[in-house]
């Protein structure tokens, strides 16, 4: 097995210092890179902690008792933190807290990550314009970052994460403050991302089913299910308290099944199931 092309977590346990119980329990994953992976679970299921491990925040920035191993594309945050950190882009839960706190304009905020890497001025201005266009922030480039709305702030946070063109993108609930149109645009944008491993925590199950290659379900610190969206949502356990996608619910009501006796979870599959039934 080519370790350089895989995400490997082995017997991973994480417990924050001073806490009684573990936040992550015995996580095992071995899956190819380059996918979009949706992480789903209720609050306090360990999603955010998992994101922190994937980004190397645990144990490099927040101390925790950690056992087991984690490598992605052959790299571990423990080996060469700077190199690992440069290869990741991270969107944290709280978009306002992610801003540098020393930028006059949205453009300055975006340039920050590139300046840190010593990028030249002309490359910076090109990339800033490009990323702003992707995230629909072109009109806001001259504004103060703190004047943005919640949704715009979140798009800015995403823009700061992708401006360094990371190979790994980790996003913890990046659409929580976006309006429906903004959310739709974001998930559409996600399908255009190439050659990047994307981890995205979200409660937007319908959208995840449309874009994700894999879904991981977290429950009480354990990874209880992983696989394609279709596979995972056709085998939910009621204990996890995860809702089924709208497409699934419709198909179940109409009894439109795919081959293998499973229900569809995405629009394309729904059409397929409809055609198969009629």
């Amino acid at each position: 097995m080519d370790e350089d092309k895989r995400i490997v977590l082995e017997n991973l346990n994480v417990r924050y210092s001073g806490m009684e119980t573990s936040q992550l329990k015995n996580i095992n994953i071995n899956t190819p890179i380059g996918q979009i992976i949706g992480i789903v679970g209720n609050s306090h299921s360990g999603k955010s902690t998992l994101c922190r491990v994937l980004a190397g925040i645990i144990p490099k920035i927040i101390s925790a008792t950690i056992s087991g191993t984690y490598t992605i594309a052959g790299r571990s945050p423990m080996d060469d933190w700077t190199a690992f950190n440069t290869s990741t882009g991270v969107v944290l839960q709280n978009p306002a807290g992610q801003l540098s706190g020393l930028a006059d304009t949205v453009a300055d905020e975006l340039a920050f990550d590139l300046i840190n890497q010593g990028t030249s001025a002309d490359v910076i201005s090109k990339r800033v314009a490009n990323v702003a266009a992707q995230m629909g922030l072109t009109d806001q480039l001259r504004q103060k970052p703190e004047s943005l709305s919640g949704g715009q702030m979140q798009r800015l946070a995403i823009a700061t994460a992708i401006i360094t063109q990371p190979q790994i993108l980790i996003m913890d609930d990046p659409t929580s403050e976006m309006d429906p149109v903004g959310r739709q645009q974001f998930f559409h944008w996600l399908t255009t991302v190439k050659d990047t491993t994307v981890f995205i925590v979200s409660s937007e199950i319908d959208d995840l089913c449309e874009v994700a290659d894999s879904i991981w379900i977290m429950s009480e610190g354990e990874l209880v299910s992983q696989g394609s969206p279709q596979d995972v949502f056709n085998h939910l356990s009621p204990e996890w308290q995860i809702p089924t996608p709208t497409v699934y619910q419709m198909a179940e009501k109409m009894n439109w099944r795919l081959t293998g006796d499973v229900f569809p979870v995405a629009a394309e599959e729904l059409k397929e199931a409809f055609d198969a039934t009629n």
Binding site: Y16, G18, I61, I62, S63
Partner: peptide, 12 residues
């Protein structure tokens, strides 16, 4: 919260 106290106290 304790996590906060720990975070700012940590020597890193």
């Amino acid at each position: 919260p304790q996590r906060m106290v720990r975070f700012f106290r940590d020597d890193k």
